[in-house]
Design a binder for these strands. Sequence first.
DNA 1: ATCACTGTTCGATGTTCATCGAACTGTTTT
DNA 2: AAAACAGTTCGATGAACATCGAACAGTGAT
Lengths: 104, 104
Amino acid sequence: MSSDYPVPDMADVDLVELLRALADPIRLQIVVVLADGEPHPKSAQEWGFDVQKSTMAHHFKSLREAGLTRTIIDGRTHAIQLRRSELDARFPGLIASLIGGAAS
Amino acid sequence: MSSDYPVPDMADVDLVELLRALADPIRLQIVVVLADGEPHPKSAQEWGFDVQKSTMAHHFKSLREAGLTRTIIDGRTHAIQLRRSELDARFPGLIASLIGGAAS
DNA sequence: ATCACTGTTCGATGTTCATCGAACTGTTTT
DNA sequence: AAAACAGTTCGATGAACATCGAACAGTGAT
């Protein structure tokens, strides 16, 4: 039984807090990768950022608490997934504009 | 002679820094008001935020340095304008998504 | 049971930042 | 020239935050 980590209701998500979560190079890159809507493993080394795993855990928590992601627990591994459809309904076009803008 | 305040080239604007500038309640509200593309006076009291004018000057500077706005100096009054067309070309859909999302 | 593995939590540290008040710059008015 | 006006800049202060290492918790393997 995997009682997942709590996420805020999308209706309660504040745009300022969401932008705050996105305004970090590591977190923005995570969101860009997650934009495909699929779950991605949290495996710290897979992401290739030059920070400790505790720092990655902090960023994952920030994203989840801001309402951007959800965590899927499976045994001793965790996956992270963007709440894409909910986000698109609440903030139309926002995620899409990030994907394009982060390219350059 | 009004040599306006310097703005970064839009090509040099970093999405993370731009999001950082937007991730503040006062600055986001300013951008939403400025989204019509027209110049708006900086007159501190016109904006109705409960902060001192030096704080407003700080926010105006943050927006300009992030690449979001330009300042138009006219005598002893200043106006601020969103670089709407440049932003839309560089980050398509971003500003539009903020206007919608800030409503709720 | 013990060990290895994955990820979180906690406390500490240094940095960044929002805010304020005071001083300053440039402009218009008297 | 002097005073009033619109904004900026500066230094200080307190809060928020990114990062780290160590300790912890839960799960799977031996």
